[in-house]
Amino acid sequence: MAVLASAMTNVFASSDAAWEALYARTEKACLKKSNLNDPQVVGERIVFGKHILYRVEGIYPQAHMQGKKGSVYCLHPYPKGRPEIADVP
């Protein structure tokens, strides 16, 4: 029984390095998708069942925004998928 339980744990477990690589990849995609200048993730990421939520802040690139700071949420499905952006109210 112990052998079976051990084998099942190894099937579902992911290494810390794999999770960090996933976080780095999704964070990079969110920073790019934000379309903000000098984007940075602020606060902690929030991990849902199959999504990661980031808050990204930066400078709006549009000339009419006159260099105002902006903030967006980025919801990124994982392990694959494309991030979605929503303005922070």
Score class of each variant (00 low, 15 high):
A18N: 12
A18K: 14
A18Y: 05
W19S: 14
W19K: 11
W19R: 11
E20T: 08
A21Q: 14
A21L: 10
Y23W: 10
Y23C: 03
Y23G: 11
A24V: 09
R25D: 14
R25C: 03
T26L: 00
T26N: 01
T26Q: 01
T26G: 00
E27F: 02
E27R: 05
E27V: 04
A29V: 05
C30I: 06
L31I: 05
L31K: 02
L31E: 03
K32E: 15
K33P: 04
K33I: 06
S34W: 02
S34I: 04
S34K: 00
N35L: 13
L36S: 11
L36A: 11
N37Y: 10
N37C: 05
N37K: 14
N37V: 07
N37G: 05
D38P: 02
P39L: 09
Q40L: 09
Q40P: 02
V41C: 09
V41T: 11
V41K: 07
V42H: 07
V42G: 07
V42K: 14
G43A: 09
G43R: 11
G43T: 02
G43F: 09
G43N: 08
G43I: 03
G43M: 10
E44N: 07
E44Y: 09
E44V: 05
R45C: 01
R45M: 04
R45I: 01
I46M: 10
V47C: 01
F48M: 14
F48I: 03
F48C: 05
F48V: 06
G49Q: 10
G49F: 09
K50A: 13
K50F: 14
K50Q: 14
K50E: 15
H51R: 06
H51A: 06
H51G: 00
H51F: 13
H51E: 10
I52P: 00
I52T: 09
I52L: 11
L53Y: 04
L53K: 15
Y54F: 15
Y54E: 03
Y54G: 01
R55Y: 02
R55L: 08
V56H: 06
V56Q: 01
V56M: 04
V56S: 03
E57R: 15
E57K: 15
E57Q: 15
G58F: 04
G58W: 05
I59R: 13
I59V: 15
I59H: 09
Y60D: 12
Y60I: 13
P61F: 10
Q62C: 07
Q62Y: 10
Q62S: 15
Q62K: 15
A63F: 12
A63D: 14
A63Q: 12
H64K: 13
H64M: 10
M65P: 00
M65D: 06
Q66S: 12
Q66N: 12
G67V: 15
G67F: 13
K68V: 10
K68Y: 03
K69Q: 06
K69A: 09
G70H: 12
G70T: 13
G70C: 12
G70Y: 11
S71Y: 03
S71K: 15
V72N: 04
Y73L: 05
C74I: 11
C74R: 04
C74H: 09
C74Q: 06
C74E: 05
L75G: 00
L75P: 00
L75H: 02
H76G: 00
H76C: 01
H76P: 00
